[in-house]
Structure formats: C-alpha cells, structure tokens
Computed example of a mutant assay.
Amino acid sequence: MSLVVIVAVLALVLPRAEGGPDPGELPALASSRGIELGVAVAVDPLRDDPAYRDLVADHYTSVTAENTMKWEHVQPERGRFDWSGPDTVVDFAVENGLDVRGHTLLWHNQQPAWLSEGSYDADGLRAIMREHMEALLGRYQGRVSSWDVINEPFVDDGPELRGNLWLDTLSEDYIAQALTMAHEVDPEAELYINEFNVEGPGPKADALYALASDLLERGVPLHGVGLQGHFVHGTVPDDLARNMARFSDLGLDVEISELDVRIPEPVTEAAVAEQGEEYRRVVEACLEVERCSGVTVWGVTDAHSWIPEWFPGHDAALPFDPSYRPKPALNGMAEALGRRRRPS
C-alpha cells in the first residue's frame, strides 16, 4: 500500500483535530456516501455576513430556508408575494452548487392573518392552496429539488391529526389533496411529510407510518418523510435507524430533516463533547438505512439558533458556537461519514 493511500485511510478513521474538518471535507465525504448534509439558513446573516456564508458553503451540500419560505413571510397579503428572502437563499445555493430543500407549504403555524383569520369553504381554500403553490413552486421549479408539503400534521405527543385550517375545512384528505396539487405544479420535485417526535417507535411514529402507507396505496405522490430530530442531550434514540428503515422499506426516502441537540444549562464541556457523539450517531443511523437521503442541521451557529427563545434553559444545540468556532458535533459528523459506508 502506498504512503498516499495510507495517509488517506488514516484521515478517514482517526479522530478529528479540535479545529474541525477542513473546508470542503464534509461535503466531499457526504457526496461520496450518497447523502445530503444540509443546513437551515437565516436570510439576514446569509445576506450580510461573509463568515456565515463561508460556513454554509464550506461544510454542507444543501440548504433549507429556516423561515423565509413559510406562508407569513412569502405571502403576507393574499396575492402579494415577497421573494426577497427566498431569492436570497436560492440564489446563494445556485451560486455555490448547493441543493435546496423547500420548507414548508402547509403548516398550522406562521400563517398570515388574512389566511388564519379568514373564513373559507372547501373550494375557496383549495383555490388559495393552488395559487400559493403555483407561485412558490412555480418560481423555483428546477432549482428546489424537494418540498416539505405537509409539516407537523399530528398533535405534539399523540397519534391524532392536528386540528388546523386545512383539516377543519377539507377533512383529513387535505394531505392527499395538497401532495397531489404540489405534484401537478412541479412534477419533478420530491414531496415530503415532515414531523417531530417520530424519531423512535411509538404511537405517533406508527400513525405517520400508517398515513404514509395509506397514501402510497392510494397512489398519492408522496416521495419521502422527514423525521425532524429536535433532541435534548441524552435522548437520541438507540433504535433511530430501525425506525427509519421501516419507512425506507415502503419505498420512501427518509431523512433527518431538522437536527439539533439542545443542552440544559449550565452547558458543560463534558456535555458538548457528548453532544459530538450524538451527532455522530445520528449520521451513522442515516448511513445504515438504504433510502436515508440525508441529514439537515437546523441552524448554522449557536449565535442564530432558535433554541434559547423556544426552550428557555437550553442552549448550544448546533455544530458551531456563537463565535463560529467548530464544536465536537462537527467532528462527530465527519467521523461518521469517514467510517461508515452505505449498504449496497
């Protein structure tokens, strides 16, 4: 074996230095394993902060708009669309050779007042859905490869469908109608249902599995499911890969779509180190599943994380700290990609 080959092998199996993977190393490893390694991005730092842009371009293969494609931002008034934020994300991705995941079309949160407070019959609401999809999917057709069409359709901790504008007006068939409509607008896009608290087996995960099975049996254009992966430190399930595999066995792609691992305060050095192992385990679980299409981290740095606001008393959930320095989580993902090969 030549010295060059020995050095290359050691680079894949030895622990990473504290400085983290070199720019371009993580994207190359992810691509060699046949998965996306994505990240959710915020518009303001993506537009204004060169260091933030460099972190994204140097360490990931795809981007998701964290908020700017949600209904309240993109269509604040009926028929008036604001493309400034989505264009920033998509243009950045195209310029840097990154894929784009669209997020999200139908959700019970972050709706503009004209939509959430309106009164609609079924035909009227379907017309609004189509107008929105034709505008949003149509604008980015060919540049956004997949969409979270349905986001969080079940109640937080149970198997029941969540009461919302769509369910209350269109019945539970709103999910099939939305997927079918999105496919009509962009036949090339991969269409997902995205949900949380379904990463390990349980009643809610079973309900998502039953929903996906029913949709496929009916010929509804569903291509994948996203298991969000908003974990508290110490709660990454041991059976994550096995739970993902049953969706893969249906013929669906499956991905960890919104990964973060929040740490209860005070955040300790030991907890941050253990978090690195948790990120490694999540990526390894994806690599164990034949149709796991990727892992997307929900935010670039702890400086721009949603966690402290939504989960007071928790912090430090992401692979870069508030000063943009890499944490063990980044090394953990690199280690997983370096060691684990996909099943043939």
Rank of each mutant, 00 (worst) to 15 (best):
Q111T: 04
A178V: 01
L252N: 12
A57Q: 09
G234C: 04
D315W: 09
P86D: 01
V261T: 05
R78W: 10
S116E: 14
M129T: 09
A270L: 14
G118C: 06
V254S: 10
A40Y: 05
H108M: 01
L29N: 07
R325M: 11
F320C: 03
Y209W: 10
N197S: 07
L337V: 08
E172S: 14
L208Y: 03
A270V: 06
W166S: 07
A207R: 04
L136N: 12
G294Y: 05
M1A: 13
L10E: 15
W298E: 03
N151L: 08
A270W: 11
R246E: 09
G34W: 12
R281V: 01
A127K: 03
E255V: 08
P187C: 02
A135K: 10
R130Y: 04
T301E: 05
N331V: 05
I256N: 12
L105H: 07
N164V: 04
V220D: 00
V155L: 15
L14C: 10
V232W: 04
L125D: 08
Y324R: 13
A212D: 05
D148L: 11
P326S: 08
E309A: 13
L26R: 11
P159V: 08
D87P: 04
I150C: 09
W107L: 03
V13W: 02
V155C: 11
P266V: 10
F92T: 10
T61Q: 12
R246Q: 09
A17H: 10
A51T: 15
D48W: 01
L115R: 11
G226L: 00
G34D: 09
E335G: 05
P112W: 02
P343K: 05
E288H: 11
T88L: 11
N67V: 09
R139A: 03
P322L: 00
W114Q: 08
E77G: 08
G158T: 11
R47Q: 12
R130K: 06
A57F: 06
A182Q: 01
V225G: 00
R281F: 00
Y174K: 02
V149M: 05
D315R: 07
L55E: 01
L29Y: 10
P187V: 05
A273P: 10
V56I: 02
V41E: 08
F311N: 09
S344N: 15
A245Q: 13
D48G: 07
G276P: 03
H230I: 01
P159L: 09
R101T: 06
M244D: 02
L55N: 06
S32R: 14
F92K: 11
V236K: 01
A329C: 04
T61I: 14
A93L: 06
L12C: 12
W71Y: 00
F320M: 07
Q228K: 03
E95P: 07
P266W: 00
E195V: 03
A336S: 05
P153L: 09
P221S: 13
E117I: 11
H304G: 07
R162V: 08
R143V: 08
T88I: 09
G202C: 06
H230L: 04
S84K: 08
T169M: 00
L191F: 00
I256P: 14
P328C: 09
R342E: 13
G79Y: 06
S84I: 03
P76D: 11
H223S: 09
E184I: 08
P50S: 07
N197L: 14
P45E: 07
E195I: 05
W298N: 06
I307P: 00
